[in-house]
Amino acid sequence: MKRHLLSATDLDRESATLVLDTAEEMARLGERSIKKLPTLRGRTVVNLFYEDSTRTRTSFELAAKRLSADVINFSAKGSSVSKGESLKDTALTLEAMGADAVVCRHSGSGAPHRLAQWVKGSVVNAGDGTHEHPTQALLDAFTMRRRLGRIEGLRVTIVGDILHSRVARSNVLLLDILGAHPTVVAPPTLLPVGIEAWPTEVSYDIDAVLPKSDVVMMLRVQNERMTASYFPNVREYSRRYGLDARRVAALPDDAIVMHPGPMNRGVEIAAEVADSARSTIVEQVANGVSVRMAVLYLLLGGSEPAIGSPAAGSTEGERP
């Protein structure tokens, strides 16, 4: 059966744990001199990136290469995609190239879902619009487990632009699946209408939540949110929702500070906090490679995928 990783909800607790356990072994590979496994020899992984994201693309590329897959980078800029080729035509092109997996980053929410309806290989969502970024949530969970030894029962506070954040969506969903207790904190303007259906607590007050947090995850705040009046200005945002040394002092002793990057130092996170011993920001990058190796291995390493779910929402039967 064809399977994909499009949403954190494509995983259940067992398969998510399998990813994390597998990533643990993959992480050991990073400590060796020969950082390569023959496992995906002869498999082709296409990185289809409609948005610039050197960080995520490089992470997937390294993960695939460490597993000996052939990697094709297909970026929207300078390709037929920028000349108006439709997503479906691009999908059929990748299909013809024999892609076993397509790693898709797209500015439109749901684009990887559509892609999954058109390609034979597995589709991995590498971030779609303001929807989801499941491998980021997996690497965040992996980082928490490595630092704190568990995920179940952890109180995880996610602070920032929840409305537009695919990282927040995937993290809330995955943390719930893994038995943690997420809380999202943001000004009300940056929380989506309908958030009451999410498996998370919601707060406007970071100072009330920090003392009860094992993990605090800060999200990047973009300047255009200010110009669109989501908040008055960066100074006020930083004062009300930024993580500085004073706020860090309110955290329990062993709490950690996370950030998916790229950071706005001095806005959502103070430099001294980002560089402190509590910060896992550099580890998150390294863990990203391990987790993506695990995902690629579990999707492509065998006769059929061990994780993921069939494409959701395949439409009416008349479409081939």
Binding site: T39, G302, S303
Partner: peptide, 9 residues
């Protein structure tokens, strides 16, 4: 490997 489900490591 290709003949069975991916195994746990």
């Amino acid at each position: 490997l290709r003949l069975r489900l991916p195994r746990a490591l």
